[in-house]
Amino acid sequence: MTDHASEPGGQPESRRDFLYLSVGLFSGVGTVLAMWPFIHSMNPSADVLALSTTEVDLSPIEVGQAITVIWQQKPVFIRRRTAEEIQTAEQTPDADLPDPQSDADRVIKPEWLVVVGVCTHLGCIPLGQRSTEPRGDWNGWFCPCHGSHYDTSGRIRKGPAPENLFVPKYEFLDDNTIKIG
């Protein structure tokens, strides 16, 4: 630095420092605030959020059948369970479950099981929706990628998956209609 510039201004230190501090603060805060629109623009947009709930008409599903609906770009398995399947699910002791959870905590009405059809291991879609597909050793679903077996409550029983199939938030609008999301 050249000599004449080493001490700019002849003002008292404190006033000058206060000014520099407020300029720094203002610029800093302004920059951070200005970043928000950029960051937020990458969050789900209004048209995407508008599709974040899905209504499903359950009336065409027979006992023992299952359907797959799309909710937030993910498959959701809805199975109308038989009395036998419900019974098996309800009577499974916690000790047999890698991720213990009672069947009652996973359904609203025992007849209807609603789970997100994405394996909790690495995101594959388990088989078992069609009667022709393998349903695994517990008659639920079987993930072909790494051999995870799920039971009739969608709980993990065997294989590398760490958690039960995820139950989405849903509600019954009437006896035959549910709203997922």
């Binding site: 629109p37 937020h40 623009s41 969050n43 947009s45 209004a46 995407v48």
Partner: peptide, 9 residues
Amino acid sequence: RDVNYGWML
């Protein structure tokens, strides 16, 4: 219309 702050960008 739909993207967050899209109009601003």
